Amino acid sequence: MEKQFNDLPGRRQEQLMAFDRLLTIMDELREQCPWDRKQTMDTLRHLTIEETYELSDAILENDLPEIKKELGDVLLHIVFYAKIGSEQADDAVRFDIKDVLNGISEKLISRHPHIYGDFVAEDEEAVKQNWEKLKLKEGNKSVLGGVPASLPALVKAMRIQEKARGVGFDWDEKQQVWNKVEEELQEFKENFDIEKHEVIDQKEAEGEFGDLLFSLVNYSRFVDINPETALERTNKKFIRRFQYLEEASNADGKALSDMTLTEMDAYWNKAKTLGV
């Protein structure tokens, strides 16, 4: 028996009313606003990607007010896509937000038999491995088939390795992985004439560098470091310190184009000392 609205706790009623308000606004905008009426799934796609990255930035900065704002933007896009889906003429492909919500609910129930069935999962790893097995039973032809082709390469490497691990294809010990990192580093170095500082074979060097990065991503999993997050935090740190270098040198009447690397390093090291 499904729950009735009035039987729900007050907080849940407030949440559903807020969601209903958004759906109503979406209906009105789609009907009355020239811009909203013109949008398609294709025109929204790049905007959705942008909103997702803005949410990611807010999460990295641990900016909760901004996270709340960006979650709203992402939710709007989900509602927008569902609205467009409900307008399709073909009954076979038409869907609305109810279908989206029911679909993900059924998927979650199906993928969590340790909660909604009789499967026993003692730890997180058991859950992950069973998840991949269930996806294969659902019709996926490959364990790696669910990795989006357009993912950034670093994120994609992490997801590929996680999915392979889900079916047991992985190293046993992190020392084995680190040995692989050192092996790949040596193979990369072999593509250079160290004395002349020249690449011997550019294509081969690129391939070995890719192998080195892949092995480093592999090792990061074994020490519980997300490589995408780690690199992005380093990017942000570099930006902060470089901008300090620009501002501090400018305040001293110096132009970066006229400074030596040693002079710039002095500002850079001061930024580090100040915790920038």
Rank of each mutant, 00 (worst) to 15 (best):
V93S: 12
L55M: 10
N130F: 10
R233V: 00
R241A: 06
E263N: 02
G146C: 04
L29D: 12
W35A: 09
K107L: 14
S257D: 05
Q32D: 14
F119I: 04
Q243S: 12
I115V: 14
F242D: 04
R30P: 02
G103I: 03
K270I: 00
Q32R: 15
E187N: 08
L185M: 10
W35E: 12
K180Y: 03
K203E: 15
I160C: 04
R233Q: 13
W131Y: 13
S105F: 09
K272F: 05
E54T: 03
Q32T: 11
V199M: 05
V100K: 11
V155I: 06
I160H: 10
E204Q: 08
Q175K: 13
E263V: 00
T24L: 14
V100H: 11
E184V: 02
L212K: 03
K237Y: 07
I239W: 09
G207R: 03
A230P: 06
K135S: 09
G210Y: 09
L108N: 15
I97S: 08
K236W: 01
D36Y: 14
E183A: 09
A89E: 15
E14M: 14
N269A: 06
R30V: 06
S110M: 10
L60H: 11
T260P: 01
D27H: 12
V120D: 10
N191R: 05
K163L: 10
Q186L: 09
T52V: 11
R21S: 10
E195C: 00
F222M: 07
I49W: 07
V100I: 10
R21I: 05
V199T: 09
L64S: 05
R240I: 00
E183Q: 13
G145F: 03
S150T: 10
K174L: 05
F214T: 01
E31R: 13
A18E: 11
N269T: 00
D211R: 04
I225A: 04
T273M: 11
E184F: 07
E106T: 04
M259D: 04
S220Q: 05
P148Q: 05
L76Y: 15
F5Q: 05
Q176S: 11
S86E: 08
P9Y: 01
E125V: 03
M259W: 02
I239K: 15
V199C: 13
L75E: 04
P65E: 02
T40K: 05
I67F: 03
A58D: 01
A89G: 11
V167K: 03
K107P: 07
T229E: 11
A121W: 01
Y244R: 03
W35V: 13
E2C: 03
L154W: 06
D118W: 01
I225C: 03
F169P: 00
Q243R: 14
P34Q: 08
G117T: 05
E124P: 00
K68A: 14
A153T: 01
M41R: 12
E14H: 12
N102E: 15
R233L: 14
T234P: 01
V143Y: 02
N269M: 09
D211Y: 02
L44I: 05
P148K: 06
S110W: 07
T234D: 11
D57R: 12
L47I: 08
